[in-house]
Each structure stands twice: as C-alpha cells, then as structure tokens.
Design a binder for these strands. Structure first.
Lengths: 152, 152
DNA sequence: GTTGAAACCGGTTGTCT
DNA sequence: AGACAACCGGTTTCAAC
C-alpha cells in the first residue's frame, strides 16, 4: 500500500509523459522491465493512477478565455447544493468546481472562446440556476503556471 | 488548420482516454486506421495535442488538502511580478497560478497533505516572497467537478 | 479517403534465478 | 522480487486503388 522511492519516481515520470515505454521507465529507475511493469499495473489497480489523458492547448482550439467564478447560494432551501452541483456537472464550460470556505460557497474554473461566449454562458446557464444568490467573475489575464503534476 | 467534426471527435476521445488504440478510434469515428493515424499526428505536430499524461488520485498519495490562495502584490516595485512568477513556478505545491482581474492579483491552486503542511508552505514559501503584500486562503471542502476535458 | 501487407516495436506472460 | 525470452498485438509506413 505504501509508495516507495521507485513508485514515486514512476508516478513523476508518468505524470510528465504517459507515453514513456516500460523500457525507458525501467532505465530511468534502474530496474528491469518486469518489476516496472508490475508496479505500474499495481498503481493502476489501486486507483492511484486514475487515467491517461491527452492534454490539449485551449488557445489553439479557440478557447482563449478562462474565468474564475465565485458563487454564493441562497441557503434558504435545503436542496440548493445538490441541485446546483448536479447542474454544474452538466456544463462543459466548467472544468473545475469546488465548495470552498470563505466569503463565497463555490469557486468555478470556466473556459470559453471569448467575452461574448462568457456573457452568454453567464446569463443563460449560470444566473438561470434558482439557487444562485450572488456571483462574481475574475478573468485570467496570464497563466503563470498550469500543470497536472503533483510533485512527489 | 481548421478542425472538422472528425478532429473534434478524436480530441474528445483522447481527452477522455489517451490509451485508445488507433483501431478503436477509427471505429468510433467511422473511418479506417490510416486517416485517423494521420489526423492524430497532425494534431500533435500542430501543438493542439500538447502532451499525454497520467492523472493520479491526490487523496490516495496523501495530498488530501487543496487550497485556493488569493494574493495581492506590492506594486511599488516594477520587477515584482517577474520575481513572483519565477518563484511560484519553482513551488511544486502550486499546480496552477494565474494573474487575474478583480480584487487581487493572483489566484493559486495549491495541493498539500494537511493543514500543518499548508501552514508550513504558507509561512516559509509564500509569505516569504518580498513582493507579496496581502494573502488570503480558501480551503476546498468538496470537489464537485474536476476535469481536464475541454468539451468540443 | 480505403484496403492490405510488411517491418518494427512495445506490452504481456511464463519461467527462471 | 528481479531478469530473461517468447508471443501477441499495436503502431507505422508503404503501395495500390
């Protein structure tokens, strides 16, 4: 169950590039192919490695705008959160949504093509949700860092 | 340069699962292997597909805490932003960092093991940066949605 | 665009130490 | 647990249509 140094190295390498061959991985961690193969399968079966995905460049496919959205719900109704969560999961523009502590209830990361698209999204998909009581938007002007790699 | 329906389908499929074989992809988009192979290579060469990575479950490797951090810089000094950007890129705990519009300058997504680790990170790595003038933290209590897939 | 063939390479498995 | 070898299935390239 516990990860040793080799496992951590493998996870670091695979988070960087999932196409590395078992042979290459084996060379980098100074083991032979078999144990590396077994370790990777184990990490997959344990659910530590969740999936392998392609990351695409959003700007090159016309998704130049990224916006963080802060939302507060009307907490009068008990079912507000459930309803809101389910609605959000259906929206492809929302890549991340978390319930957070602080001055608002939710923090969303939204990706759209431009300001016009954001306006449409905002007015016809977000503000339309009954449970929303307050919203505010913060537009991304520069991405200083963006990675999926959890350092180990 | 423009993406057609087939390209978008391929990107959707590969964003969901990068291990799909060319044969499987070909079946799903109703083409033969050759053009699908060529299209994928083209998307890679154009930089539309940036990389293939393994996504790992942070909770299963002891990174149970996620925090959004809002930072305002002291703008007296011209070089503040450059310095801060470079410092942030070196911190493995910071997965995302953006310059944003609104009441603060930066929004960071930070991943650590627990509150103690966050406290250490906060005090010895963030507040230590000269350019920082104000900080506030918002702790993630529930991840409603978390995906890398940009819907096409 | 499609099909089919060939070469090559990596994953996978079994067996050995 | 790690090393070695054989097999299978995939990718990749090519030719022809």
């Amino acid at each position: 169950m516990e990860l040793d140094t080799i496992d951590r190295q493998l996870l670091n390498l695979l988070q960087e590039n999932a196409l590395l061959t078992v042979r290459e991985l084996a060379e980098r961690v100074h083991l032979s192919i078999t144990p590396v193969h077994d370790r990777i399968k184990k990490l997959e079966n344990q659910g530590i490695i969740e999936k392998y995905v392609a990351l695409i460049n959003r700007k090159r496919i016309g998704r130049g705008m990224m916006v963080y959205c802060f939302i507060t719900l009307d907490k009068q109704r008990q079912e507000s959160f459930q309803e809101f969560n389910e609605a959000i999961r259906q929206l492809p523009e929302v890549l991340e949504c978390s319930v957070v502590s602080g001055n608002f209830d939710y923090l969303l990361k939204v990706i759209v093509s431009d300001m016009e698209a954001y306006n449409t999204f905002y007015q016809s998909k977000l503000s339309v949700l009954h449970s929303v009581s307050h919203m505010s938007s913060s537009f991304v002007m520069e991405e200083v860092k963006s990675t999926t790699q959890i350092g180990l």
